[in-house]
């Protein structure tokens, strides 16, 4: 089975169970390598359906303060792209089965070599790729390499996306589409935007792919609200913050369980 097929199968399974996917993000290497492995294993146990593996970059221009600080810490501890792939390999060996989507800004991939990265990522156990600063217009090389290797190419859409851009992104995306809930950067917010439903409907007109919503989601009830309109609930900053707190792994486990329950329709909105 290719990575793309594994991602499709995950969403297919969830659809039959009438649940949305709980999709946690973690900044790899934060707050340390061992805690990263524990955090992801804990999330896998409490109901994560798909992981976003954040590869640190010195200039994360789409990220808010929480992820900026986390990736900066990871970098100062020497976390490289190769280390991130090694952690994925280790997690696979320890029995984590959920699909992994690598999330990286373009320059680290470009420097590593796009084809070499795709090969190494697949062999480590990565299933899909998200590059937040790479729109379809600039993705020819990456798409070709991912297609050949069976890796999903996941693109983002934003509330500002026009009809013609939604149509174009839908043609390029495989696996699922990542909807950015707000015009803004990553980070927990207290309220979901009121026009989220309209945005989802605008995208649905152009694709049958699963839609996952991220940016700003931090509580079980927010996750539950998102799960009613989309196939996936992405949570980053809130979990990263928990991972960096004093009781790190335990805090992630507790918040992860709450978010999973919300995403899976077990919490009231």
């Amino acid at each position: 089975m290719t990575g793309l097929e594994r991602i499709r199968a995950t969403f297919e399974q969830l659809k039959q169970e009438k649940r949305a996917a709980f999709m946690p993000y973690h900044a790899m290497g934060y707050p340390s390598r061992p805690i990263t492995l524990e955090v992801i294993s804990a999330l896998a146990e409490v109901g994560a359906d798909l992981f976003e593996i954040g590869i640190p970059h010195s200039d994360p221009l789409a990220d808010g303060p929480t992820v900026q600080t986390a990736t900066y810490t990871a970098l100062t501890k020497g976390t490289s792209l190769a280390d991130c792939l090694a952690m994925v390999r280790e997690l696979r060996a320890s029995g984590v089965k959920q699909p992994f989507c690598a999330m990286s800004y373009y320059n680290p991939l470009f420097r590593y070599g796009v084809e070499r990265f795709v090969q190494d990522a697949v062999s480590a156990g990565v299933d899909g790729l998200i590059v937040p600063d790479l729109p379809p217009e600039e993705s020819e090389d990456i798409e070709a390499a991912c297609r050949a290797a069976g890796l999903a190419t996941i693109y983002l859409l934003a509330p500002t996306s026009t009809e013609s851009r939604i149509r174009m992104v839908a043609q390029h995306a495989t696996g699922f589409i990542y909807l950015v809930s707000v015009t803004g950067i990553t980070g927990a917010r207290t309220e979901l935007p009121s026009d989220l439903k309209d945005f989802v409907q605008r995208v649905r007109k152009h694709t049958n792919l699963p839609l996952a919503i991220g940016f700003g989601i931090s509580t079980g009830s927010q996750a539950a609200a998102v799960a009613q309109i989309a196939e996936g609930v992405i949570v980053g900053s809130a979990l990263v913050k928990a991972a960096g707190s004093e009781d790190g792994v335990a805090a992630v486990r507790a918040l992860g369980a709450e978010l999973a329950a919300g995403s899976h329709g077990l919490t009231r909105v």
């Binding site: 221009l61 789409a62 373009y106 937040p132 600063d133 790479l134 729109p135 217009e137 600039e138 693109y155 983002l156 859409l157 934003a158 509330p159 500002t160 996306s161 026009t162 851009r165 992104v169 950015v180 015009t183 803004g184």
Partner: peptide, 11 residues
Amino acid sequence: GKFVPETLMPA
């Protein structure tokens, strides 16, 4: 080229 998040592409 244009290497920016999707939010900025329409702008």
